[in-house]
Simulated scan of single mutants.
Amino acid sequence: MNLNDVWFLLIAVLWAGYFLLEGFDFGVGVLLPVLGRSETQRRVLLNTIGPVWDGNEVWLIVAAGATFAAFPEWYATLFSGFYLPLLLILVALILRGVAFEYRGKVDSDRWRRNWDRAIVFGSLVPAVLWGVAFGNIVRGVALNADHHNVGGFVDLLNPYALLGGLTTLLLFVTHGAVFLALKTTGPIRASARAVAGGVGIAAVAAAGGFLAWTQILRGDAITAGTAVVAAATLVAALIANRAGREGWAFLATAVTVLAATATLFLALYPNVLPSTLDPAYSLTTTNAASSPYTLRIMTWVAVAFTPVVLLYQGWTYWVFRKRIGVQHIPPATSAPPPAGAARP
């Protein structure tokens, strides 16, 4: 295996880690108005991901940076051809991060409701558009001989990619609901289990159809195996969730996300962006890669710093591993106005 293949594998691992960790973040955000019937319950939901959501987004930054450094032509073609959906994802993620920080700054129900809407929007849009984007990456786009995408935005809204967007949305919501059942107590835990069971059935249907279509499009014996693992573990997650075994259910949905991501990257390889005009125009791990010297330097950097990042993030999850409920949320208080300030 040469360094081109090694870095394709590492980028696949980074995206799988991102979807695994940020996936339940997105699910929690989408479920905020569904499971958060009161301000205290919404604070419980947000506190389950509060210590980890920004660390989870590091996986996206590293994945994008690794793509830029290891496969610059893939990065350039991808970000120019997918400009509008990726811009929408970026805006949604920025708005979501601001909402997490700002919703508690003013003691106003209207203020908090507006920022809660921003959290839902900032979670829903990426959950859908990442599936659409990766559906198009696997399916291929209209690359010409110069590796320029000559297709338009409407071309990205094809049935296969739209099914991919529906699949990631339902899968992330199921993953997030199972995470909430694992991390909370009382009525929220019971409601999260009910939501996971209901949405999970729809996720099984969507994911089964999308992975089967992927297998027909670009699959082989290996992708068939990973697709079966993804489907089987998702069904196992629903069974464990129904039995009240949230830890096993979350482990199963985690394996589902990893196996589904592996299926997409295995179906893509050795291409990194196929051409629908002519297979000879496709970007591959060979013609899109950086120089061998660049890849060697990147490899040493990855070997040195990746264990540090993994240990730190693992420690964060261990520290905040316990369940929380409404009894752990202190009453909301607002800071008194400065002396002499007029009250509104």
Rank of each mutant, 00 (worst) to 15 (best):
A304C: 07
V106M: 10
A192I: 11
R323A: 12
V195N: 10
S123E: 05
T174Q: 11
R139C: 00
V6W: 14
P344E: 11
A99F: 02
S108M: 07
I239F: 05
F8V: 03
H148E: 12
L93N: 00
L88Y: 04
A202Y: 09
F26P: 02
N47D: 11
A12K: 07
I239T: 06
A177K: 06
D278G: 03
M1W: 11
T306M: 13
S334T: 15
H175K: 03
A332M: 14
L60G: 01
V128R: 03
L268D: 06
R110T: 14
A332R: 15
A196P: 04
F134E: 05
I222W: 15
T286S: 14
E57T: 06
R343Q: 14
G36Y: 03
I119P: 01
W74V: 10
G197K: 01
L124W: 05
N136E: 02
S282K: 05
V309N: 02
V13D: 07
V229N: 07
V150E: 12
F134Q: 09
L251N: 10
R245P: 01
A196D: 02
A16Q: 02
A12N: 07
V58A: 14
G65A: 12
V173H: 08
P159R: 12
H147R: 07
Y102V: 12
L163C: 07
A145P: 04
A161F: 09
I94H: 00
L171G: 10
Y281H: 15
A16T: 14
D116H: 10
I222A: 14
N144I: 12
G176D: 00
A177W: 06
T286Y: 11
A207G: 15
L84V: 15
T256F: 06
Y269C: 05
G314N: 12
A212F: 12
G97S: 04
L251S: 09
N136D: 14
A161M: 09
D220T: 01
V154A: 14
T40W: 04
T214A: 09
L311K: 08
L143A: 03
L180K: 02
A280I: 08
H148V: 13
N4R: 13
G225D: 01
Y160P: 05
G197A: 05
